[in-house]
């Protein structure tokens, strides 16, 4: 009944909705060598609502990838708490993770890659084959099921990586600069495909990028971060309508002001 009364500070989020992420007073320091500590993240507090597309925007060294790794549970905060429905104190199997760089396991075919998380989860072979093929079709890779990643282009491999991340229906999807190394055309096309897939799935996405326009085009919320030490500079809501077309986002009302605001946060008043 009056459970709230007995709660310690911070426990209020225990019954937070599936897919929401709370980050409370998180600090992260690395020991660079015997003499010096590097402060990667300092005093991070965030409450990310479920089913929203959130971008972590900032220059390199602002700790945005580190923050993503804390949510994934593959690194631990030096102090503070990360919570995805429950406190994240070990590898977080409640998320799907698309890392930087080449995503798929090179020794498995595309089909084996997309089936892999289902196989680990103990899904029966026929069922996981069906779901994998469905997602391979959704990312327009039908016909390439038996290809190894080396036989796919960078953009195709990223789409395969996305299919593998979405096939398990996890409430949270973490993406670490997934489109960074791709050429501009492939990038735009993947941004549009991601937007369409996400508007269909509507899980929580945390998307790391250093590209201002990419952040605006994809996100509902942009967390702007500043470097050394990594801090949150601002939290900006993107009120652009959905469904979105990433190509026409720059023509939307409010884009210019939003873009200018983010540029100022990233580069300072007098820069550029």
């Amino acid at each position: 009944m009056q459970i709230v009364a007995s709660m310690r500070p911070g426990d209020a989020a225990v019954h937070a909705p599936r897919g929401s992420i709370q980050i409370e007073n998180v600090n992260k320091t690395y020991r660079e060598n015997a003499a010096s500590l590097v402060v990667a993240l300092e005093g991070i507090n965030l409450d990310l609502p479920a089913n929203s597309f959130v971008s972590l925007l900032g220059p390199s060294g602002c700790g945005k990838s580190t923050l993503l790794k804390l949510i994934a549970g593959i690194e631990k905060p030096s102090s503070g708490v990360v919570r995805c429905t429950e406190v994240v104190d070990r590898v977080n199997t409640g998320v799907a993770y698309v890392p930087q760089g080449r995503g798929l396991f090179p020794w498995m075919t595309l089909l084996a890659n997309v089936e892999f998380p289902l196989k680990i989860a103990g899904v029966a072979p026929a069922e996981r084959r069906r779901r994998a093929l469905e997602w391979i079709a959704k990312v327009n890779l039908s016909g390439f099921e038996q290809n190894f990643p080396r036989q796919l282009s960078g953009g195709m491999e990223k789409r395969g990586s996305l299919a593998r991340a979405l096939v398990t229906d996890k409430p949270i999807l973490l993406m670490d600069e997934p489109f960074g190394p791709l050429d501009a055309h492939t990038r735009l096309s993947l941004q549009q495909q991601l937007t369409q897939l996400w508007e269909d799935v509507k899980n929580t996405v945390v998307f790391v990028t250093h590209d201002v326009i990419e952040a605006i085009a994809l996100s509902d919320i942009i967390i702007v971060m500043s470097p050394r030490p990594g801090r949150i500079a601002d939290v900006v809501k993107v009120a652009l309508p959905r469904p979105r077309n990433v190509l026409s986002v720059p023509d939307c009302d409010g884009f210019v002001e939003l873009h200018a605001h983010l540029q100022r946060l990233l580069f300072g008043e007098h820069a550029l």
């Binding site: 994934a72 593959i74 590898v91 993770y97 680990i120 398990t168």
Partner: peptide, 20 residues
């Protein structure tokens, strides 16, 4: 990253060794 991904997918130690 390969090992991290597999563990996030829920792979246990034996599965990480065998599959990754």
């Amino acid at each position: 990253d390969f090992i991290h991904q597999a563990r996030i997918m829920g792979a246990n130690r034996a599965e990480v060794i065998g599959y990754i």
